[in-house]
Design a protein around this nucleic acid. Structure first.
Lengths: 237, 237
DNA sequence: AGAACATTTCGTTGTTCGACGAAGCTTCGT
DNA sequence: ACGAAGCTTCGTCGAACAACGAAATGTTCT
């Protein structure tokens, strides 16, 4: 059977995601998974005792966890030892636990190397560059036709043409944009078709260069000059 | 009954884990989370359309996701833009997706620093040391009284006494052991009361030392000599 | 072989929860 | 100020599911 991994994205659908979620949704099953987090293999009765449920109930839960691929079972005599199916399952449970634990904390910067400040958020601009560019266009009245569906005004279009970033094509002024909250910068930037267009132009003009083996980007000298010409305070990067 | 988890661990309980699981368990909610995985902030109506549900239903789901801390909301005029609550949530969804995708694949080694090769798997022996010790005892006929309830034979007990690891007490030969599949090594090692006893002895004799701030362990020179005397090929570690 | 044990399957019960339409609330545009 | 649009709350219906006891299956010990 060929894997559906296909290409760039869409590796998993809603149903596959929900299926795993449903397995984790029950307190008894969660207790079982936590008990097995140390890598041990335990029989059904013991796990039922740990979870505070009858053996019959534990058996039903274990069957579901096995069918779902989260657990594996080793039959040995009159016992059937259940264990986590693999490291990835342990990693999943650990991530799940940490997500809840961090809820109250403020995410303090964390690993955010300078290279990651400029990146592509899939098809639109993100990171500090995206935020800066969006705020630059928005701060000066008349560059963006705001409202919900953001569009580039004629004056804004001309500014970008002069800087070399955009080309002279009236269709560009019809491209709809969308404001998108980037959760790294916690500020809005430009997304939608307009954002996509500008991102592509940043690469086509050579202002930005992709670095190999990373999603991070680099700014060329040429791009640096252009951004300064646009009025962006580039020293902050 | 006081919490059985002693103290060392148990950062998260069953209910907290199940709460997040329940949030992920619904296909509609999963579709919403996937749609927000790119970091975008979208209004309720759009998300409902994407998930194929009525606005009222989407609103209910979004409320749950917000209460659960997975989403955040930004009110802007008559729109309310929902976004992922933070990077940790994005990481969680990604891990969840990968867990299902990796089901067929073989887990290729992955980051496994040398220090982690020797570790305590809570109360029993795990990692390479555990596997090696178990196989050493099992490979030579007569050291372990096998079957399901593994027990130390008189000859096996004597060997351990001579090496200094075990003490001369007939009760030790009655300790039941259990074979436990370690998913890092993918081989069986010794668990159960017998495994617990041997682990405790490894520390009491100073063969193993806990390193601070880690679950990893170190082998003392004294322990090194003892393990070699037991016939373990210690160079492999 | 028969007793004891671990585990599973079956059938039942009660609760939980997703889905929708209708109604109420707030904000935007003219 | 008025109507329209987006979103939320309320009430109801129907399906899914966890829990248990009892009975069936398979394994070990005497």
């Amino acid at each position: 059977m060929k894997t559906s991994a296909s290409s760039a994205f869409a590796p998993v659908g809603r149903y596959q995601l929900a299926e795993i979620g449903a397995l984790l949704a029950d307190p008894s099953r969660a207790a079982i998974l936590l008990a097995l987090m140390d890598g041990s293999a335990r029989p059904a009765g013991e796990l039922g005792l740990l979870a505070g449920i009858a053996p019959a109930t534990a058996s039903a839960h274990l069957r579901k966890l096995c069918d779902g691929g989260l657990l594996g079972v080793v039959a040995q005599g009159r016992h059937r030892y259940y264990r986590l199916a693999g490291e990835d399952v342990a990693h999943l449970v650990e991530t799940l636990a940490q997500t809840r634990a961090q809820r109250s904390r403020i995410v303090a910067s964390a690993a955010d190397p300078a290279m990651m400040r400029v990146r592509t958020c899939y098809q639109h601009l993100a990171g500090r560059l995206g935020v800066a560019l969006f705020e630059r266009l928005r701060s000066q009245r008349g560059l963006l036709l705001t409202a919900d569906a953001v569009r580039l005004s004629r004056r804004g279009h001309k500014l970008l043409i002069d800087s070399g970033l955009a080309v002279a094509d009236d269709a560009i002024e019809k491209l709809p944009g969308r404001s998108c909250l980037d959760w790294t910068e916690r500020r809005f930037h430009l997304a939608g078709p307009l954002g996509t267009y500008l991102t592509r132009r940043l690469f086509d003009t050579g202002w930005l260069e992709r670095r190999k083996h990373t999603r991070a980007l680099g700014i060329s000298p040429h791009g640096h000059a252009g951004l300064v010409a646009l009025g962006l305070d580039w020293n902050q990067f």
